[in-house]
Design a protein around this nucleic acid. Structure first.
Length: 287
DNA sequence: CATTTCACCTGGTGGC
DNA sequence: TGCCACCAGGTGAAAT
């Protein structure tokens, strides 16, 4: 399932392939739950725009878009010399979303909900069988720029991280999954970072010491960075923008290893349900 | 207000 | 071999 490392990998791959390209036209499907605003409006807003760059914010992929070229610039306004974006396209992959750069003649996979034809001849395709993903177009002339609600786990410092959790009483794993606190952590990396930090998932956040929280912050950062280097975790059907799988699933210590021996102490990994999610930990290494 | 639960989805899996 | 119940989980709304 796409979490921060997977989304980062996709965003980098897409950026490398489409930065500077122009969207000739866009085709959208009609499954309403895939769209935060009407697909016809998204298609119209995207057509003709230039892709200035693509980056990740939390679990979202943000396309920064420049004004439609050509005719639009002729009308008195400066043919915007600046690279300031005037629109954004925001992609959330949900559980099973894929964002792929393909050739136009590649077979269109089932559950493809959007296709962007680019001036270079490539196509950018969004497919999502389970439809937990979301597509959103924002015109920055009339709306506000996208912002992830939570802090970036790779950037946040010691004090700010501790302040996020010290006042709350929920289990630490539930807090890690809360995107309004930290943006980008999902089920895999919550379990793996709690193992690395030696903290049980049910521990209440306000009962954690400053040392616990700092170990957790560093564990999160180390694991997320390592996972990004390995192209993310391909546990179900995750692939990057070129259709390639990641390799971090080979290094999981607890996630989906129920009953298997802990890599550190050989104790069987235990599975519980927490916040409605399968949760995995080592009863010996985590306290 | 803070926290917990549940519905939304479909492909893959395991049991019979 | 076929059929079906069940599970996976990110998010936001509803419930507690």
């Amino acid at each position: 399932m796409p979490e921060l490392p997977e989304v980062e990998t996709v965003a980098r791959g897409v950026d490398r392939r489409v930065r500077g390209d122009r969207i000739e036209q866009a085709w959208f499907g009609n499954r309403p739950q895939s769209f935060k605003n009407p697909p016809a409006r998204q298609a119209k807003g995207l057509a003709g725009r230039t892709i200035l760059g693509v980056h990740r914010a939390g679990k979202h992929i943000v396309f920064e878009l420049g004004a439609a070229a050509g005719a639009a610039g002729a009308r008195g306004r400066n043919p915007s010399q600046t690279n300031a974006p005037d629109a954004q396209w925001i992609v959330h992959l949900g559980m099973t979303g894929r964002l792929l750069v393909t050739t136009p003649d590649a077979a269109v996979a089932p559950h493809t909900h959007a296709r962007l034809e680019l001036a270079s001849g490539c196509e950018l395709r969004f497919q999502d069988p389970r439809r937990f993903g979301r597509l959103e177009f924002r015109d920055l002339g009339s709306g506000i720029a996208f912002e992830a609600h939570g802090a970036e786990p790779l950037v946040i410092g010691t004090r700010e991280f501790a302040e996020l959790f010290q006042k709350r009483r929920m289990p630490i794993k539930a807090a890690l999954l809360n995107q309004a606190l930290l943006a980008g952590v999902g089920n895999i990396y919550a379990d793996e970072s709690l193992f690395e930090a030696g903290i049980r998932p049910r521990r209440r956040t306000n009962r954690l010491t400053a040392a616990d929280l700092e170990r957790l912050r560093l564990a999160l950062r180390r694991i997320l960075q390592h996972a990004i280097r390995l192209g993310g975790s391909s546990v179900s059907d995750y692939v990057d923008a070129d259709g390639e799988r990641g390799f971090f699933q080979l290094e999981h210590c607890v996630y989906q290893r129920t009953g298997e021996p802990c890599r550190r102490c050989q104790t069987p990994i235990r599975r519980i349900e927490l916040a409605g999610r399968g949760t995995h930990y080592c009863p010996n290494c985590q306290h």
